[in-house]
Design a protein around this nucleic acid. Structure first.
Lengths: 130, 130
DNA sequence: TATACCATTTACGTGAACGTAAAGTTCAAC
DNA sequence: GTTGAACTTTACGTTCACGTAAATGGTATA
């Protein structure tokens, strides 16, 4: 009794519209199976995969990039060569994520500084003791 | 002799097209001054400001959000009330950045795990010693 | 099996962030 | 002062990630 979900249930789960889910299928990010009547039927694996997609989106990746990444995650490369190529790609993506983190930390530091400066300004105007 | 730049120079500096620069002006993100002939003339301050815009973009913020943020950065709020509101907004934005960093770190951890798994797989197939 | 509510595809619409082309104006160098 | 490159505005075009509507067909329950 594997929990198969309708498109509506999936859409509710991720708080998006059905259109979004269908669009992701259109773009080749997912391929849910169909029942006898042609309705989409989502396996837990399909749902997990969609989770990856939404996470990727949250991080600001494009759908095409996400597509590449999830194909990495769910394919079991046959040969050693293929496995090596896949690993290289994975390391590259990891470095990209590292860079993003680093840049965000720089932005954070800048904002902190700016906030501290303004807080000092506020204390002065209020005449609060330091 | 303050280094005033043409739109072309600025575009080259940031590796974008002139259209992009003009679009940012259209949207109210920058307001470079004009020379007697109506051509845009960018002061160092204008350039710095553009730098903020591109950084914001890199982090995945929308132009409207960036607009709010740079207005925050360069305005000197007059009253204490206004200053407080500005600070609140700043803290909110800082938390958003923190959240993004945290999420990216989670993604990073996942990718690391996945890479380690695949590297083990590769060693096994190669028959390498551990 | 009738009814109400799902789901399906097809296809045109939308906002953000520019691209691109046209027609005219200014600048810089000779 | 003429010429060519750089600049200006105006305005329509494009891609991404969906929104939305229409026409049709499947599903569940009384």
């Amino acid at each position: 009794m594997t929990e198969r979900l309708s498109i509506q249930k999936v859409a509710e789960k991720f708080e998006v519209t059905q259109r979004t889910i269908r669009y992701y299928e259109e773009r080749g990010l997912i391929k849910p199976s169909r029942n006898s009547g042609g309705h989409r039927s989502f396996s837990p694996k399909d749902v997990t995969r969609l989770g990856l997609v939404f996470r990727g989106k949250k991080y600001g990746f494009q759908l095409d990039e996400i597509k590449e990444m999830i194909h990495l995650f769910d394919q079991d490369p046959s040969g050693v060569r293929q496995l090596e190529r896949t690993l290289d790609y994975g390391h590259e993506k990891l470095r990209e994520v590292d860079d993003r983190i680093h840049e965000l930390q720089e932005l954070r530091a800048e904002m902190r500084q700016w906030l501290v400066k303004f807080e000092e300004e506020l204390r002065e105007r209020r005449g609060d003791p330091v």
